[in-house]
Design a protein around this nucleic acid. Structure first.
Lengths: 116, 116
DNA sequence: ATTCGATATATCGTGGTGCTATACATAGAC
DNA sequence: GTCTATGTATAGCACCACGATATATCGAAT
């Protein structure tokens, strides 16, 4: 079985992944974590100590907004993308795609080399 | 014009990129930096303060080995992949490809959502 | 009722790493 | 002589993932 992706890989796109999940609609932290875990076959599983500070940072940057809702008995903090958040998602997704292509190209060159 | 890729993007694959470049044969630091810059259209340009400590770490891990050579007038420290380094390159390249696919899938889901 | 696991959010401390700044030295061009 | 490119190196700062820890509610099993 494949293990969790390395710390520094996650670091490069944790914000992007969260914005991406939020594009599917208003969600609270625990749910975001769960959706990411399920969508990745458990290879991305943001710790609470990673996710909540990240959400706070995104809010400070004005990319998401939050509202508490206790209607369902549970106290949940629902996060929603702002216009700036959607804009950032688009830009960051593009940058990520470009970067991935760039790295893949390097890897392809490496594979083209003789074994040693 | 496209700008340099963000700090945290680079962080996820700086080691992989260096190993990858070294798969093309023995090289010294300044040359590695130059090849990465050229291969990426200047979007990956490791600062000296990033590259040299990184090379030292790779050497401490036994993934590369180094030899000084002053033959050409210049004092240059040549780096070469070890067997462990080639093995790591293969493994890390695979993990990177998996991760990229995982993120791309999330992005595709986000794109499938209505605008707001 | 009580214990236990899942749900739900939050912060602190640590570790690792990219980057700027700084330092030092040589080579070639002007 | 001066300037730019080449070449390696370290110190300190900024940033962030993660484990540890804290707190609280809910439902189910005992």
């Amino acid at each position: 079985m494949s293990e969790k992706f390395e710390r520094d890989l996650v670091r490069g796109s944790s914000g992007l992944m969260v914005l991406s999940v939020l594009a599917g609609g208003k969600k609270y932290g625990y749910l975001i974590q769960k959706e990411l875990r399920e969508a990745s076959g458990s290879r991305v599983d943001l710790a609470a100590g990673t996710l909540y500070p990240l959400l706070h940072r995104l809010e400070d940057e004005g990319l998401v907004r939050s509202t508490w809702d206790s209607a369902s008995g549970r106290d949940r903090k629902w996060y929603d993308l702002t216009a700036a958040g959607r804009k950032r998602l688009t830009a960051q997704a593009q940058q990520w795609t470009d970067y991935a292509a760039c790295v893949q190209q390097l890897l392809a060159l490496a594979r083209a080399q003789p074994a040693g």
